[in-house]
Design a protein around this nucleic acid. Structure first.
Lengths: 275, 275
DNA sequence: TTGTAAGCGTTATCAT
DNA sequence: ATGATAACGCTTACAA
């Protein structure tokens, strides 16, 4: 594979100049830019990421370990992370822990060895101590969906149950008694806990909760819209609904708009909303 | 972060020796092995993958591009690939095409720049010409679920419909008329095509096919077992079943065994089986 | 068995 | 604006 030297030779300039045009340095004459670009095209030049990482001390890669990418929950998580880092030009290296302590360890080590610029770890099997050691070693490491007190500032997790409970309670305190729930149809922990939060809040205030008040859909805008249509179709006289997520909530609003229903108040936070 | 030089200094040996013990070279005295390992532990040494890749001309990474990891279909695919390459000590770098030609292109280029040892591409939007160019540039590239004549030897795809049709036909030709179908409950193309293959084969031979003959489950052993239990519960007098996949078929067998049913013949291939 | 040193493909400093 | 060149961290002849 052609290197920067080949390009330099063909373009009749030094490697320094080639590097300059690659990196769009302002100090590069129009002439050399043209020559270099032609040479690059001619040989199909591809900058070597390893060499770059070595000298620049940055891989431009964010590492992520998950239990198993084939699990839709992790797939969704990886995608969200990808969406986050893409704008900054970073890319993802994904490691699977396969719910095994040693595999989790290897996955993290691989990522560290690759000098990832950031490291998002989801690991259920590794011991607290191991994780603490890794966190110390890798300042950019963050632990997801798990809390370890010694490194609490590196842990990010959601209290699904509590969030849904609070959102529902908020509606109740605003005078609503007929409250529906728009639920994700994914069969994962998050969905169960949030729905339970809604149910328990309703019960805590002696309000009726029946399966009839709950509608399911894919956890996206379209799913929210569909679910809301089901709910409307049941003629329940609801005055408010709590939603699984922001995107489903957006679908709900769309659905209401379509039906000419005025939404007097919306409140979105932590993936929950009132309408 | 500590480098090989630091380790060498602390261990009181040369970097060459350190490199030797890292790579388990036979020519390294017991003494230096001990010294080096102690030094490595002391500083928490992590070999720099970029430096290694640079000199060894091999990243030990297999690149994979998919439409979207959050899609269970791709998640499953990635996992299968991971299972394949793990034994050879390779790891996966995953790129998302997000069903956009340009993103697909960028994902592939990122992987090429990282000098992946192998490249598995799933790309629906990129033009044939682009793909052909990439394949030429990257000898290790393979195209999945898409056929391009010019590089047919690099394309791997499954004719889901035909496979299921043939398997079902095989059962019919063996004299079976009451044939069930164990289907994956994932809402993806593969499932639809395979089920349709089964249905069409039945129809082609004027055999009855009703929804009653089809049972659904997760596309794994457990799912196959559950689905078979449903099917048995319907009391249909089936003499054979075709299955979505090998793993579901394994579940089916387990389920039959549990019920004391003797399985006279099993035939597994392309994810389909007769019992 | 060990060490010295060249080289992998870049970037960045320093002259010019 | 451009070119030499050192440096990044490692592997691997080649010598000793």
């Amino acid at each position: 594979m052609a290197t920067i030297k080949d390009v330099a030779r063909i373009a009749g300039v030094s490697v320094a100049t080639v590097s300059r045009v690659i990196n769009k340095s302002p100090k590069a004459s129009k002439a050399s830019i043209v020559a270099v670009e032609a040479a690059m095209a001619e040989v199909g030049y591809r900058p070597n990421a390893a060499a770059r990482a070595l000298v620049s001390q940055s891989s431009n890669i964010i590492g992520v370990t998950v239990g198993d990418v084939s699990d839709p929950f992790f797939g969704q998580m990886v995608k969200s992370i990808d969406d986050c880092v893409r704008p900054s030009g970073k890319h993802l290296l994904i490691g699977n822990g396969y719910h095994d302590a040693n595999t989790e360890k290897e996955a993290i080590e691989l990522l560290i060895n690759n000098r990832v610029d950031g490291l998002v770890v989801h690991a259920k099997r590794l011991s607290d101590d191991q994780l603490i050691a890794f966190a110390k070693e890798q300042p950019s490491m963050v632990l997801i969906n798990r809390r370890i007190d010694a490194i609490s500032n590196r842990c990010v997790s959601l209290d699904n149950y509590r969030g849904a409970y609070l959102a529902t309670e908020h509606l109740i305190k605003n005078g609503h008694t007929q409250i529906g729930y728009i639920c994700s149809d994914h069969n994962i922990e998050d969905c169960h806990s949030r729905r339970q939060g809604y149910i328990d809040a309703m019960k805590a205030y002696k309000l009726d909760v029946t399966d009839n008040n709950i509608a399911y859909g894919k956890p996206d805008e379209e799913g929210g819209e569909h679910a809301m249509i089901y709910l409307l179709g049941r003629g329940l006289n609801l005055t408010a609904v709590a939603c699984y997520s922001d995107s489903m909530a957006a679908g709900v609003i769309a659905s209401l708009d379509d039906n000419g229903i005025h939404v007097p108040l919306t409140f979105q936070s932590s993936g929950l909303m009132t309408a």
